[in-house]
Computed example of a mutant assay.
Amino acid sequence: MSAMAASSKKRLSRSLVGDITLFIFLGIFGAFMALPLVYTINNAFKPLDELFLFPPKFLVRNPTLDNFFDLFHLMADSWVPFTRYVFNTVLITAAGTVGHVVLASAAAYPLAKHRFPGSKVLFTIVVLSLMFSQHVTAVPNYVIMSWLGWIDSYIAIIAPALAASLGLYLMKQFMEQIPDALLEAAKIDGASEYHIFWQIVMPLVKPAWLTLVILLFQVLWGTDGGHFIYSEELKTMNYALSQILAGGIVRAGPGAFVALLMMSVPITIFVISQSNIIETMASSGMKE
């Protein structure tokens, strides 16, 4: 009876034609999503006469490195070297991203795996904080930074990134999926809480903190300092890009090349992290 019931079930299978059709369908959408990146790459190597063609040409006809050399000369003549903008951007991005991942994970672990008075209230506050946009909290953040004396310093950008509530929420939700029996077994074997956190919990929630790296890296890499940084020597690359574009159409070439530089690093980080996320989610799933 069971064999007859199993044979009567409809078997789902794809033919070779179906696989080819699906591949073509996904390929078309993938190519469409890649068009902005391809267009930006081509613009970076276009001479000025091709940049202002109408109707515009998608692909470059006469590739040149003049945009790169023009950018080099512009930055060489500026009051602050371009390497200083690069250093500021890398410092803010690295410190904010790494610090947020560590602090969010360390705060999420006791909320997910330890029951203590007020834990539910604290997590409710974290969830409620996700409802407020950055525009709502901009004025309170500025007042707090001014009171602490952190205006016009790196910490004014790094500190809000460290305290972002999205990372704490995401890490807590992932850590709750770790079997309690695994942690109890580690405790019986004599492992300390720090050993459990770094050697067991963090590797298992690798998809979560890699996702945080992607999201926060993109935000911090594109920051221009906003209303917190006023000194020219503390500005970021995004600010330098805006100053280049403010020079008018004669700086369209260097501006196109800087846009490529700004896009290349986040895309590289995303590609590397995405591969690790897929691999980790496929190989480290655990069920109690």
Score class of each variant (00 low, 15 high):
A208W: 00
M33D: 02
M263A: 15
S192K: 05
Y169H: 04
M145H: 00
I151T: 14
A164T: 07
I151D: 10
A44M: 11
A185G: 01
L162K: 08
S2M: 02
E288W: 02
L234Q: 02
G96Q: 06
K57F: 11
A44I: 07
F87C: 09
R251E: 05
W150S: 11
F87E: 06
V90A: 15
K46Y: 10
G247S: 09
W150F: 15
Q199W: 03
L91P: 04
V139M: 15
L48N: 11
T236D: 05
V98M: 14
L122N: 04
L53T: 14
D180P: 06
G30N: 10
E233Y: 14
L26E: 01
L16C: 12
V201D: 04
I155Q: 12
N141Q: 11
A106G: 02
V250H: 05
V102S: 05
S78T: 04
I278W: 01
F116D: 00
G167V: 03
N88P: 07
M1D: 08
S7Q: 14
F123M: 10
S273I: 03
W209F: 08
A44D: 06
L216Q: 14
A44N: 10
P266M: 12
Y109F: 15
G167Q: 07
S2T: 03
H195V: 08
K57C: 06
P179R: 04
L162Q: 09
V143A: 14
I188S: 04
I157V: 14
T124D: 09
N276Q: 13
S231R: 10
I41A: 11
Y230D: 01
A112C: 10
A95K: 03
A31K: 05
K287G: 02
P110N: 06
I214Q: 08
I272F: 15
P254K: 11
S7H: 13
A76R: 05
F32K: 02
D66C: 05
M175V: 01
N62P: 01
G285T: 00
P110V: 08
V80Y: 09
R84W: 13
A34S: 11
K172R: 13
V86N: 03
P160M: 06
S284R: 14
T83G: 15
S153N: 13
A94C: 15
V86Y: 13
P81S: 14
V136M: 15
T21K: 11
Q243M: 14
A112M: 03
N238K: 04
G18P: 03
A164V: 06
I155L: 13
G118S: 04
M131S: 14
E232I: 02
K172P: 00
S192Q: 02
K172A: 00
N141V: 08
S8C: 01
L234P: 06
I41G: 01
F116N: 00
G96H: 09
F29I: 13
L210M: 15
T97E: 08
A181V: 01
A256M: 02
F270D: 00
S231P: 06
F29S: 13
L128P: 05
K172V: 02
L37E: 01
M171T: 00
D180T: 02
K113E: 00
L22I: 14
A208S: 12
T280D: 15
G255Y: 01
K57V: 11
F68H: 02
